[in-house]
Design a protein around this nucleic acid. Structure first.
Lengths: 143, 143
DNA sequence: TCCTAGATCAGATTTATTCCGATTTAGGTA
DNA sequence: TACCTAAATCGGAATAAATCTGATCTAGGA
């Protein structure tokens, strides 16, 4: 999924393509990692200095609803956002220092199936599975 | 793990046992579910009206460090706390409406082992695995 | 009973996110 | 191409969650 495909998809959904939204997408597509709202704001402001937090948050929430962006709630209450590259559901290996993440092919579907079977009265709507730690570049720097 | 065992453990760790801390523990031990800081505050204030948010948060963070309490970051950025009943690591089936949770015996250890093997350069420190949905009592009420 | 490190209280502060009203604009239409 | 309007943006204010601060209090050891 590249920028043009995504812009086309937005138009098809009747969503206006503004320069700010386009720039936010370019940031998210630039590097496959999680970003904080502030990081995104700073990067977007490099080209559009007047962009506000409000625009960043509104856009991220819109993209989240459209399935273009995934939000993760880190331990400690930090929210991070990543472009939803995958066509299908996936999980992450997340570096707690630099925030970079890598997709994992693995999903604990066997666990989920078992849980669903054992709890038929519970209506499962979703699940989270994230692995935390320190990546190659950061593991030495942990104070 | 009951109240007296826990109080004994606190004393053994050199941590002061105050009435507020004891009451917070009683709340957490009362029902096996996740609580928000505010819910805990309200319940503790029923007996100690002067208790402040500060005390609740400080105590929860202390208990978290001591491993007595588990914190979960819900989607949307809500933090919830639960007494760490289990002697060993476990996961939850969490109701998004009432907040009640039930422990799961299942843990995706096979996934984790595979991930660890495939990413030897990444220092894994932890993982999250939570299943969200609506429990028997709440599934009909979802608006 | 006294003493002191540690805990609490109350309110101020910080930080992340959302809201609001005025202004601007993307994209459809004539 | 110019116009129109719903939707998006801006900037700052408002809100909410969590933490900090400084004065006061207290659990538990001597």
């Amino acid at each position: 999924m590249n920028l043009n495909d995504t812009l086309f998809r937005l138009k098809a959904l009747g969503v206006k393509v503004t320069p700010q939204r386009q720039e936010i997408l370019e940031v998210l597509l630039g590097e496959e990692r999680y970003y904080s709202a502030e990081e995104i704001l700073k990067k977007v402001q490099a080209r559009y200095p007047a962009v506000s937090f409000d625009t960043v948050y509104r856009t991220l929430n819109l993209f989240k609803k459209l399935g273009l962006v995934v939000e993760l709630n880190f331990q400690g209450g930090y929210r991070r956002y990543e472009f939803n590259h995958a066509d299908r559901h996936h999980h992450h290996l997340v570096c707690l220092k630099c925030g970079r993440s890598q997709k994992l092919a693995c999903c604990p579907t066997d666990c989920l199936a078992g849980i669903e079977e054992e709890n038929p009265e519970f209506a499962i709507t979703g699940h989270s599975f994230e692995i935390y730690g320190y990546c190659k570049d950061c593991r030495g720097q942990v104070k």
